[in-house]
Write a protein that binds this DNA or RNA. Structure first.
Lengths: 336, 336
DNA sequence: ATGAAAGCGCTAACAG
DNA sequence: CTGTTAGCGCTTTCAT
């Protein structure tokens, strides 16, 4: 058989009606053992595969879930996507991966495209995590006009009745700094991200809170304003070290900042873990022997959880919205 | 309007036939400015979105391309996927991501599922790169029974009439070792991967070739049999260093091996780039200040290329098969 | 237990 | 320029 077989071909070859073939295909309803065997044989012989497109169309639903992330290659999101993929695979669902590239306009366009696909659901990490300003209302409308289950992942969008799973930036920073304080540190600096962004602000907030609650005044000199890039962190750190006076510990508030920081310490011929310490927001998975402290998140687990929540919501659309805050480990590694 | 609108609803609201609506939707064929405007207005008013499922079904083709990788979270593949995603997005194509988890059986199952989807094409990195042994014929049949364009990415499967894009392991190793020799090194060791795998074997081959062509005998003592894991590389290196007698340079034949090696050097209180050197297959993107040499591949570019090749083949299915070998940079960083 | 038939929403001739 | 109509391949009543 050259041309693609259809269910009708199979039915006629097997001498039965198409409904019967459909039944064995879906393993649903009554079919006598004899006819089932016959049909299965024909299917095997002719190498027939049902068309998912036709099936989806007839049922007005697909076997697909979309995932929108702001940076597909970022190891953090790559791991999350893998976690999602794991769960979807168990459910025989296909995963459509979309990269918004941190661009809200792109994200909106993606959402529009996805709206046409009769998806089972969507897992999204919004391009902008700072929608509480103005755009939130509009965003809410777009999301709701999808009319399909949506789970928000790694997002501060904990408003409205949406399912959310994420790591709490404030709490994680707070806990890490608190752990350092309990470990005996007093002079703790920070290299922040761009404080225009919610992520950077929240991490800074946690830092401030932990110090204040422990009766430590914020030393403005020890608050270094970075932008979550290696380069800036490097420059800041070089300058900091060259001044001679610097904090005992620096809270590097994202992984790239940590890398720039460590590189600068190294280049200044100082020894990390002896001359100066570091608490990193996120572990650097490459070099475990480095002497530093960190907040360890588990994005793979976050992905699994997001997908699981989506599955639950698909099954029970009327479930109340759930907010799930992922726990992180705080690893303190300072010796004096 | 509560229930989902169809093209018919729009047609009747606009007082036209459905074919006309279809025309404006697809921006194809003649439609008077006046009716077009009218229809567009209705579409906007009722927030109508055409069903991609129905459309795909009617056209017997979809707007999707699938990508199968053996490890979704591996930064190397994550970057490749991002490259693919970039190209597909330009073509308004959706990307279905599948993770075979290095498991051939899983890959086969994925292929079967994908066969049902009327995809535009598939980009695949086979789970096993060593099919020239026995399974190749069977694999070939499976792939060909897909009846859709397939591009192989990062695979040694350069047999048959298939489109392939990949980095040549033999050539890259060869070039790196050759560069080191030209730089003045004679004592070059290697930590291999599992030589049962084609990747490990090819990297070893390139190493051997470069030495032989330059009249350097292979010193079996300097060939360390690893398995591409950090742990094994670490242990091997510790043992190597403790013996006192070790090569001047070690070719660490994958990135995890490099990490294990560097860690061990560090723990042995030796200095990388002074006491011992390292040529790494793949750059470690975290710490640029490390003193080592490496082969730098560009998986993002590989992904872009794979997707571009696929687009070309979709457009012209009769194109002769193309083999594209990606170039890599060799960075030598040894000072004596 | 099985078959006939009516869609699902859209595209693509074809006729006007 | 526009409307009518015949599918696309499958699911799902509804009879039998």
């Amino acid at each position: 058989m050259k041309t693609k077989m259809t269910i009708e071909d199979i039915a006629s070859k097997a001498g039965v009606g198409i409904a019967t073939v459909s039944r064995v295909l879906n393993n649903r309803g009554y079919v006598s053992e004899k006819t089932r065997a016959k049909i299965e044989e024909v299917i095997k012989n002719y190498d027939y595969v049902p068309s998912a497109t036709a099936r989806n169309f007839a049922k007005k639903e697909s076997n697909m879930v979309a995932v929108i992330v702001p940076e597909a290659h970022n190891p953090y999101f790559a791991a999350a996507v893998e976690g999602i993929s794991e769960i979807l695979e168990q459910q025989e669902l296909l995963l459509i991966l979309c990269n918004s590239d941190k661009d809200s306009a792109k994200e909106e366009k993606i959402l529009y495209t996805l709206k046409q696909q009769e998806l089972k659901g969507i897992i999204v990490t919004p391009a902008i995590d700072d929608l509480d300003k103005g755009g939130l209302k509009e965003y809410k409308e777009i999301v709701e006009s999808l009319y399909i289950p949506v789970v928000f992942m790694d997002s501060g969008l904990n408003f409205y009745e949406w399912d959310v799973v994420y790591f709490d930036n404030i709490a994680n920073s707070y806990n890490a700094i608190k752990a350092a304080i309990e470990d005996g540190s007093r002079e703790i600096g920070i290299i922040t991200g761009d404080l225009q962004t919610k992520t950077a602000r929240d991490r800074y907030k946690g830092y401030v809170q932990a110090l204040e609650e422990n009766g430590i005044d914020i030393n403005e000199k020890y608050v270094y304003h970075g932008d979550f890039t290696v380069k800036t962190a490097y420059n800041i750190t070089r300058k900091m070290l060259s001044k001679g006076k610097y904090p005992e510990i620096v809270f590097t508030s994202n992984n790239l900042t940590t890398i720039g920081f460590i590189k600068a310490v190294y280049d200044a011929k100082l020894k990390l873990g002896r001359d100066i310490h570091c608490i990193s927001f996120d572990k650097l998975d490459t070099f475990e022997e480095l002497k530093y402290s960190y907040i360890e998140r588990n994005p793979l687990q976050m992905g699994r959880l997001a997908a699981t929540m989506l599955m639950e919501r698909i099954k029970e659309p009327e479930l109340p919205a759930r907010k799930y805050y992922m726990k992180s480990k705080i690893i303190v590694n300072i010796n004096r």
